[in-house]
Each structure stands twice: as C-alpha cells, then as structure tokens.
C-alpha cells in the first residue's frame, strides 16, 4: 500500500546553521585543526597527575568530612572580613553608582557628563577584580581595606551600567507627564524615574551583594583579605579538611544569599 505514495523524491535535512557548504566544511575543518593544535599544546605530566589522584582523593574526603574546628579562629576571622567587606563595599558602591548611573543615562544627562560617566563604567567593567585588587594592595597595603576598595570599584561599574540601562528604558510617557507639570530636573528624577527603577535597583544591589561575597573569596588570594586568604593558606599547608570546610561555608552562604535575595526581590515588587 505504501507504493501508492511513490514519488521518488529524496529528502535530506537542510543544514541547521550555515547554509553554504563551503563555509560549513571550512568551519568544521578549522575547528578540527584548532582542537588538534590546542590539545597538542597541553603538556600533561601524567605521573604528576597520577600522584595527584591520592591528594585529590584526600581533598574529596576533606570535602565530605570537613574539619571546621581546628582552624576555626582563622576561618572565622576570614569570614568576618569577607562578610563585612561585602556589605560595606556593596553599600558604598551602590551609593556611588546612583549619581553615575543617572549620569550615564542618555535621556537624563547632558552629553559631556554622559560621556564621562560612561567612561568610568567602561574602565571599571573591563578590569577584573583580581587585577584591581593587585593594584590596590600595592597602593593601600595588604588586608581587607584594599579588598573593600576593589569590590566597591567593581560594584560601581556593574550597578551604574545596569541602572543607566534601566533609566533609559523607563516609560517616557510618565516622565513627560511630570515634565509637563513644570517640575525641576531633581523633581523629575524623584517623581518619574525613581519609582520606576527603585525595585530593579534593590534587586540589582542584592544580586551584587551575592557576587561581591563570591569575589571576596577570590581577591584574598592576591592579599586583599577575607576568606580567600584563609583558603589559600589552608591549601598551601595541604590541610584539605579545613579547605573543604571553607568551601562548604562559601557554598552555604551563596545558597542562603541566593534564596533570600529571590525572596526579597519578590517582596519588593
């Protein structure tokens, strides 16, 4: 009965992404050559890796049976440093971000201010935390104060950019309505812009709080204080059970932060 349908037409799926076969095969070939080259440059010292398996196993054990007690003084100091650094840098960063964010919004700021603020944002965003931390440690000495400055700097780039984008996306109708009442520029910001972007700003700040905590664990490695320094020491001393404990604490705090910030964001809106 199927022969009734005989049409003799064959069918092949047409390529999903790249229509031209030359381009397609060119890209496949290029990817293959790249992969072969890239993998061949990875020199693996297999005996070292094999020796490492034992250490890896001990680390996994440390992760499963963490030791919170024997280094608790170091851990708690690092943790307090990280947490205080996180909170202060987020608060200060957000406070600085508000004027810069407004300045970087095309619909509110005059051109020279707009360009200046955008430049600040660009610089802050393209330098990553660890590099800034290196510089700040060199200038301000070791310890959480350099970390605080680093995180503040990074927060400014992050919040200002997103805040500016939010302000640029506000409902212009509302802004025009307030302008039509003869409001001043400050009144305009207060009545038309602030109500529209406030919930987002709070959400972003909480999100950044979360990021800052995670970053505070990293910049300690280059001397900017916090739990990262403690972790670095623990790993240097091959104390994997303490390292496991520190990592578990970081994971737990991030989980709590994520869960509660989701809750707060729902409550704000």
């Amino acid at each position: 009965m199927q022969s009734v349908f005989e049409t003799g037409r064959t069918w092949r799926r047409s390529p999903v992404l790249i229509k031209d076969w030359r381009w397609r095969w060119g890209i496949y070939l290029f990817s293959l050559v790249y992969l072969v080259l890239a993998i061949s440059t990875v020199e693996v010292n297999w005996t070292r890796v094999y020796e490492g398996l034992d250490r890896g196993w001990r680390f996994l054990q440390g992760f499963l049976v963490p030791d919170f007690t024997s280094r608790w003084r170091d851990i708690s100091t690092g943790l307090v440093e990280s947490l205080t650094m996180t909170l202060t840098s987020t608060v200060v960063g957000v406070l600085i971000s508000i004027p810069i964010g407004i300045g970087a919004a095309r619909n509110l700021a005059p051109v020279p201010i707009y360009l200046a603020c955008r430049a600040i944002v660009a610089v802050s965003r393209s330098l990553q935390e660890v590099i800034i931390a290196i510089l700040f440690v060199a200038m301000f000495g070791f310890g959480p104060f350099a970390g605080f400055l680093t995180l503040t700097f990074a927060t400014v780039g992050f919040i200002s950019k997103l805040l500016a984008e939010d302000i640029e996306e506000i409902d212009e109708g509302q802004a025009d309505a307030i302008r039509a009442t003869g409001a001043s520029w400050l009144q305009l910001v207060n009545y038309a812009v602030q109500p529209q972007v406030m919930p987002r700003l709070i959400g972003l700040s909480l999100y950044r709080l979360d990021i800052n905590f995670r970053e505070s664990a990293v910049i300690g490695i280059v001397g900017a204080g916090g739990i990262g320094a403690t972790l670095n020491t623990a790993i240097d001393r091959y104390e994997y059970d303490s390292a496991g404990a520190i990592l578990l604490i970081i994971i737990a705090i991030v989980m709590v932060a994520e869960y509660s910030s989701g809750f707060v964001r729902k409550w704000v809106q």
């Binding site: 349908f5 049409t7 037409r9 069918w11 799926r13 047409s14």
Partner: peptide
C-alpha cells in the same frame, strides 16, 4: 540522523501534496 526510510519520505511528500504544501517542505 534524519535518515528515514524512503517509503516514509515518499509518504510524507504525498501527504504534503494532499494538504497543498508540496513546495514548502524545507
């Protein structure tokens, strides 16, 4: 792999023709 038996493909073309979409297959 989208390598259906030819009978299936024949049937599909016939059905597309029946519903008036024979030139829209791809």
């Amino acid at each position: 792999t989208r390598r259906f038996p030819q009978t299936d493909i024949d049937m599909a073309f016939a059905l597309l023709e029946r519903v008036g979409l024979s030139d829209q297959a791809d």
